[in-house]
Amino acid sequence: MTGAAGGIGSATVRTLAAQGYRVVGYDVLDAPAADGGVHVVGDVTDRAELKGAVDLAVERWGRLDAVVAAAAVIAGGQPLWETPDEQLDELWDVDARGVWNTAAAAVPAMLAGPDPSRGRFVAIASAAAHQGLFGLAGYNAAKHAVVGIVKGLAADLVGTGVTACAVSPGSTRTPMLDATAAIYGLPDPETFASHQLLRRLLGPDEVAATIAFCCSREGAVLNGSVVHADGGFS
C-alpha cells in the first residue's frame, strides 16, 4: 500500500487491516503499522525500494494478494504554459511513474504466487483524471496517465487471474484537499462540496471502503475499469 501515511492511504490501511489483511504500508513519511502489518519508509520513484517492500510481504506471509498504489502529490496554481518544469516533473514522477513503478515491482510477485486469481492491483486516480481543472494541468495529465496505466496493465494481465482497476475519488476530506484549497486561494475546502451531487465532502473511510472492495475476490468484476467514488463530482 503506497501513500500509506495519510489521507485516503492511511484510511485504506486501517480498512484492509480490519478485514484481515496483513498490510505493508509504504510512504516517504513514517507512520504506525496496521495491526499485524508493517510500515516501510520509501519513495515510489525508486523501484528498487518498492521491490524491497514487495519482497518483505512475500517473505513474511508467503504471497501478495493485493496492491494499492495511492501515493500522490498535488501542485499547480498557474496555466499550463506557466507551469515550471520541476513542478511537472514531480507530479509525473510521483503520481504517474509511481503507479507504474509500483505495478512493475508488485505484479510479478502476484503472478508467481500460489493463487494468482486472488491478485488485485488498484491505483488511485482522481476526479481530475476525467475533468479539466483550471490551474492544475500537470496534475490532470498525471492522473489521466494513471487511468491509462491501469487499462494497459489490465490488458497485459488477460488470462493470468490477476486484475487491475482504478478508483477516482472526488473531493475528500484530506490534507491534499486542504492543499488544493490553498492553491485556489480558498479559506475552506468545504467550498468544494458544491461540486458534488452529494453536496458534502467525502470521508477517507468511505473511499477506503470502495478500494477494499476492489481488493476483494469479488472485485475481479472491476478488471480494467475505473470506479468513480466521487459523490457525483462535476
Rank of each mutant, 00 (worst) to 15 (best):
N140F: 02
A141F: 01
A142K: 05
A142W: 04
A142M: 04
K143I: 00
H144Q: 01
V146N: 05
G148N: 01
I149M: 11
I149W: 05
G152R: 05
G152N: 14
L153V: 00
L153H: 04
D156C: 01
G159V: 09
G159S: 01
T163S: 13
T163W: 10
A166K: 01
V167L: 08
S168K: 03
S171C: 12
P175D: 14
M176H: 00
D178V: 10
A179P: 13
T180E: 15
A182V: 07
A182H: 06
I183T: 09
D188G: 04
D188V: 07
T191F: 15
A193F: 06
A193C: 02
A193H: 01
Q196T: 00
L198N: 08
R199M: 13
R200G: 14
R200L: 02
R200K: 15
L201F: 07
L201G: 10
L202E: 13
L202T: 11
G203P: 03
G203F: 11
D205N: 07
E206G: 11
V207L: 06
A209C: 00
T210H: 07
T210F: 10
I211D: 07
A212E: 13
A212S: 13
C214F: 08
C215G: 09
C215D: 10
C215E: 04
S216K: 05
E218V: 04
E218I: 02
G219D: 10
G219R: 06
A220T: 14
A220R: 15
V221P: 12
L222Y: 14
L222A: 10
N223Y: 07
V226P: 10
V227W: 09
A229R: 02
G231F: 12
